[in-house]
Design a binder for these strands. Structure first.
Lengths: 197, 197
DNA sequence: CGCGGGTTTGATGATGCTCAAGCCCGGTGG
DNA sequence: CCACCGGGCTTGAGCATCATCAAACCCGCG
């Protein structure tokens, strides 16, 4: 059941093959339908969520009612509001399934037990945190110093798979630009590349 | 020597009074002059750095040669590129003292030992990571959805002390706007508040 | 006094947003 | 089978915000 998670953990820390038993004991498998919400603004995130299959988005809605997507979470990644889950404080985010999906969930109590029982998991978690921090810093720097076109080009390199899977207006929201702007950028790129086929 | 750090740790995790001995053993005290760099783009961060006294900035220089400030670090906070320090990968940041300052530093080897010897420290570190992540997420969201004026007003609330201590053009850089824009915003605010004294 | 770093001010222009309309295409019901 | 609907994408026009460039200004200091 938890093979994918186990594989991922192996990428970060050293583990014994037997350790997978622990994961199986602590995590719970669930299916969620496209459109379902794992979390809403103001709620405390009840579970940490590992994506086995499918796709999620994490977003906020600002005072003007506009959505801003912080993150897409694909298979093999985590989703949800980690900060809320750990601190038990209300989340500021919505988390929504963009496809029928399969997830592993774990409650805070189980999480704490697992941390005590399995040092490797604690270590893994710390490294995940570090990685999230770096990724978020990168996005922040990008938002500072890079124009719309370059942001899109960078996304093409770093997350090409996403483009096939979500509507364009969500890409625009993720990149922090209007749907119209993204549309125009794509037109321009298409024009430049004409004749290359 | 490490009283301030110890105080800070107490805010996050439970510790024994005797634990301060450990900190004294592991951390090294240093003074740095205004203008000194703790770290430069491309270097691996050799130390984790706790600020006892003074002020630091963390920034990058983009392809066009423009500086972008990610963070100011005051007394009681950490500075430097944590990600680089932990992962041993080259940093992307510059870290510069904005005043004559006093710091506590610890090497990676000592850091690892301390983590093993002092579980409370490990826990403290994890919570710091979480906090940094939240703070960075906040800044990212802000860069998305908030105009220049509101960013400044928010800074006035969250970090009023900073304003007294650093030149305005650094504030502008931190907020992701030009110095001229910040200047105009301040003029406007001054105008609106006339007569309130 | 003059220098230099920092700030202010004005003029101009680029970038990307908003609003509004039209288009494309797959799905549905008559 | 086709008309129509609706969601998403595109296109254009006008506009707001903010960056850039250039000049002046302010003020502490040698």
């Amino acid at each position: 059941m938890t093979e994918l998670l186990f594989e991922k953990i192996k990428e970060y820390v050293r583990v014994e093959d037997g350790d997978i038993v622990l994961l199986n004991a602590y995590f719970k498998f669930e299916k969620v339908k496209k459109g379902a919400f794992l979390n809403r603004d103001g709620e405390v995130a009840q579970y940490a969520t590992f994506v086995q299959k499918g796709l999620f988005r994490t977003f906020i809605i600002d005072e003007r009612g506009t959505e801003h997507i912080l993150q897409f979470s694909m298979a093999g990644w985590w989703t949800g509001d980690l900060a809320s889950f750990i601190s038990r404080k209300p989340s500021r985010f919505y988390v929504e399934a963009l496809k029928d999906s399969e997830i592993l969930i774990i409650s805070k109590e189980s999480w704490d037990s697992l941390m005590e029982e399995a040092p490797f998991y604690l270590d893994y978690h710390r490294k995940l945190l570090e990685r999230s921090l770096i990724a978020t810093q990168d996005r922040l720097l990008e938002s500072y110093s890079v124009d719309a076109m370059k942001k899109y080009l960078k996304l093409l390199k770093t997350l090409p798979d996403i483009l096939q899977q979500v509507p364009q207006y969500m890409i625009a929201s993720y990149l922090g630009m209007s749907r119209e702007t993204l549309s125009r950028i794509r037109r321009q790129l298409a024009k430049e590349n004409k004749g290359q086929y």
